[in-house]
Design a protein around this nucleic acid. Structure first.
Length: 278
DNA sequence: CGCATTTCCTGGAGGC
DNA sequence: TGCCTCCAGGAAATGC
């Protein structure tokens, strides 16, 4: 389940591998996973090179020259890997893009693989018409966010879990980092957002940032579907304090971690560290 | 407006 | 061993 730290890890690794490289052969193996520019992707990408690879929300963005963007939304099980062009093809590989111009060396390529197909690839080029699923807009990034802006987001009356999961409100948090951030701040996931005082809202924003930064340092959390661009696992799952740990002792106080459903998702919290609701 | 529910999809887990 | 059912969840759509 790639969220902000996983997308950031992939973006950094892709940037190291791809910055400055020209794009080569394109193979679209599942047309319905590619959206945006109505032209064939191979044509849209022809004679373009990667300037840099960045992240926005949970999305990985290849910034190209001449100006265009190739956006990867990973959904639940999306993976972007870098490998040799002759590496065995994994099941559910929907897109392959060769890169580099070293004719002497083995050709390398990036691959997009997504078994559950909740993700997709968007080619934003030219001002042409649009095909396929739309790539909706997202709210502000949490890492550079200031306390006043966060306070304004909390001002509506919503359960904290639902609000933090809402990509229009704040971009990049998913189920794991929502629960971990709320635990770090000692706030119950069903607490109504507008009831937080200044100290609590400040603490929650700091908790979100520190949780995300620590997860990025660990290259994200590998539970089942997420892997780095070289196929290795992230390691932040070993540091989860509540997520996925129903019945196990809270790493803060030892009380049993509870699981409820909030915002339609499994939600893990410690009833002692995060008091306040039934 | 907020929130619950449903849909998409596959692989892994558990039951028998 | 081999079915079968259930479940996980990001995002969008629908219903209350």
């Amino acid at each position: 389940m790639p969220e902000l730290p996983e997308a950031e890890t992939i973006a950094r690794e892709l940037d190291a591998a791809l910055a400055g490289e020209p794009l080569g052969r394109v193979v679209v193996r599942r047309q319905d996973m590619v959206h945006g520019d109505p032209r064939p992707l191979a044509r849209s990408l022809r004679n373009r090179r990667v300037v840099r690879v960045s992240r926005r929300a949970k999305r990985v963005v290849l910034e190209l020259e001449p100006k265009a963007e190739l956006v990867f939304r990973l959904g639940m099980s999306g993976r972007v890997t870098v490998c040799s062009s002759d590496a065995p093809l994994e099941r559910h590989t929907h897109l392959r893009i060769a890169f580099g111009n070293r004719t002497d060396a083995k050709m390398r390529e990036i691959r997009f693989c997504d078994p559950r197909r909740f993700g997709g690839v968007w080619c934003l080029a030219g001002g042409a018409a649009w095909v396929g699923k739309s790539l909706g807009d997202v709210g502000p990034e949490p890492l550079p966010m200031r306390p006043a802006q966060f306070r304004a987001i909390l001002d509506r009356r919503r359960q904290l879990k639902a609000l933090l999961m809402d990509q229009q409100m704040i971009a990049g948090l998913g189920n794991i980092y929502c629960d971990e951030s709320l635990h770090a701040a000692g706030l119950h996931p069903l607490r109504l957002s507008h009831t937080l005082d200044a100290a609590e809202s400040g603490l929650l924003l700091r908790s979100i940032k520190s949780t995300l930064r620590r997860a990025i340092k660990s290259n994200g959390s590998t539970l089942s579907d997420y892997f780095r661009t070289n196929g290795e696992s992230g390691s932040f799952q070993a540091r989860h304090r509540v997520y996925g740990r129903e019945g196990e002792p809270c790493k803060g106080c030892g009380a049993g971690v509870l699981r409820i459903v909030a915002a339609g998702r499994s939600t893990f919290f410690c009833p002692v560290c995060q008091p306040g609701q039934p």
